[in-house]
Every structure is written in structure tokens, then in C-alpha cells.
């Protein structure tokens, strides 16, 4: 098996990592790879490509609307894998797929993992596939195909459960900045900082990244003080709704990563 690009990235790179989420098939049906390439070129460290679902209950309005538009455009899991056939000819950074469980279940979990492996996708994030179901029914599908499953934790997740998630994870653990749907701004209050510190002090085997509510340079930098970096979703997807979005990607990423 080739070295997992994701593990290699975390091992190799110093400094904060920036991951970007966007929805496949949004704003245009064939925009998926063009956006991915522009993001790599602009300096994103890895990508989370969302496959759309009709009922995205963990998402706020921005990502909901992108999913709805992507579905109207005709995006399906099948078509996404078709588009990703050339992924590794065009991109070197790690790529994860993110979406809800029902489309994966209908495509076939085993087939989904195999398609990820074939396309060169390192892992998946399925927020509504809980640990119990993953461990009991699907863990082997993932590991047999060398595809990593990324778990989420929130300020309310118990230490005991975090330890268990840490054991099952290979890649990183996705820290939600607060219990919220996507697209809200990160509240940098004492409570959030206390939670980030608590996780840091747990000394987990896996690195952590903060997501949900990271929208600008300031929140990105704050997140990176406590973890290996952060994931930006809604704030980026909003850019994709604008005219000439491809030209704006470079500026968006450079602004997030700049140290001024």
C-alpha cells in the first residue's frame, strides 16, 4: 500500500495546516476538479470534497444550499467517482470525501471504500455514521481498502469516548469548535479555549484539527494555537457562489494563511 498522503502530511509539515471543504458539483456540475486544483495551487494543505445529500442535518444554510444546487446540477456519488478518476494525475495533496451515510449505504459501503481507494482518496468523514455502527459493521471495509474514517468530537464528548475515538482513528480527529451546525462563527470564549486545552492535554495518539466556525485568518490562527490546524467550509463555499469564483480562490487561501 502506498504511504497514506494524509499521515505523511501530518508527519512532515510544520506550521498550521489548512483544509478546505467544498461541495462536489457546486456551483457547476464539472467544477469539482477545477476547484480542487485551484486550492492546491493556492496552498491548501488538504481537501474535503462533499458529496451532496437531500437532508444534511448537521449543516447550516450555506452548505445546505450548495448541496441542493449540486443535486439539481445532477451530482451523484457515482458521478463524483467518475470525476475523480483523474484525481491523482492532477492533484498531490490529500483528499477526503465528506457526506451523509445514506448515499454511501445506497452506493454500497464496500464499493464506496473500494472506489475511494481506486481514486486515491485517503479518507472519509460521515458525520451521521456513529462509532458503534462503524465499529460493528463497517470498520473492516474501510481498513481493508486503506481508507481512513475521520471522527468528530464536540465540547460535550466525554473523555472516555474521546479515548475510544482516538483508538479507532487513523489520520486525525475533527474537533468541533462548539456544538453547532456548520457556518457559525467560532466563539473564542473561555469555554472554547478551555475545551481546546483539555483536548491538548489529553495527549491523544492522533493529531487534531478544528472545524465548524472557522471563517477568517483570525479564527484560523487561533485554532492553530491549540491543534494542528483548521478546516474552513461555509466561508469558502460562500465564495463559490460568487461570479468568477475560480479567480478568487487564490486570494482567499493566501489571506487565510498570511501572517500579517
Amino acid at each position: 500500500m502506498p504511504v497514506n498522503r494524509l499521515n505523511e502530511l501530518f508527519a512532515r509539515k510544520n506550521g498550521p495546516l489548512l483544509s478546505i471543504y467544498f461541495t462536489a458539483g457546486y456551483p457547476e456540475i464539472d467544477s469539482t476538479l477545477k476547484i480542487a486544483e485551484a486550492l492546491e495551487k493556492a496552498g491548501a494543505d488538504f481537501l474535503e470534497i462533499g458529496f451532496p445529500y437531500s437532508d444534511p442535518l448537521a449543516d447550516g444554510p450555506v452548505i445546505q444550499q450548495s448541496s441542493q444546487k449540486a443535486l439539481e446540477n445532477g451530482m451523484t456519488v457515482e458521478l463524483l467517482f467518475e470525476q475523480l478518476k483523474d484525481l491523482r494525475k492532477r492533484l498531490t495533496i490529500p483528499v477526503l470525501l465528506m457526506g451523509y451515510f445514506n448515499p454511501v449505504l445506497q452506493y454500497g459501503v464496500e464499493k464506496f471504500c473500494k472506489s475511494c481507494a481506486d481514486a486515491g482518496v485517503e479518507g472519509v468523514i460521515v458525520p451521521d455514521l456513529p462509532m458503534y455502527e462503524y465499529e460493528g459493521m463497517y470498520k473492516d471495509c474501510f481498513s481493508n481498502n486503506g481508507v481512513t474514517n475521520i471522527f468528530l468530537i464536540t465540547p460535550q464528548t466525554s473523555d472516555e469516548r474521546i479515548r475510544k475515538i482516538d483508538q479507532l482513528s487513523k489520520g486525525f480527529i475533527y474537533l468541533l469548535s462548539s456544538s453547532s451546525t456548520t457556518g457559525k462563527n467560532l466563539a473564542l470564549n473561555d469555554e472554547a479555549e478551555h475545551y481546546f486545552s483539555r483536548i491538548r492535554e489529553m495527549n491523544l495518539n492522533n493529531p487534531t484539527m478544528i472545524g465548524f466556525g472557522i471563517s477568517d485568518r483570525e479564527s484560523f490562527r487561533k485554532a492553530a494555537e491549540y491543534t494542528r490546524g483548521a478546516i474552513v467550509g461555509s466561508a469558502f463555499v460562500r465564495i463559490l457562489g460568487e461570479d468568477n469564483y475560480l479567480e478568487k480562490i487564490d486570494g482567499f487561501i493566501r489571506n487565510l494563511k498570511s501572517n500579517d
Binding site: 458525520p127 455514521l129 456513529p130 458503534y132 455502527e133 471522527f151 468528530l152 464536540t154 460535550q156 468541533l176
Partner: peptide, 19 residues
């Protein structure tokens, strides 16, 4: 005890709702 009726049921929820 695991929340299932045969093949059906369970708790397919995001971690935010788990607690």
C-alpha cells in the same frame, strides 16, 4: 439493548447529538 429491531433502528446521529 443496542437500539435495534432486527436490522432496523440504531442511532445514526452526528456526534453533536450523541450526549
Amino acid at each position: 439493548e443496542n437500539g435495534y429491531y432486527g436490522d432496523f433502528g440504531g442511532a445514526y446521529i452526528p456526534e453533536m447529538l450523541y450526549p
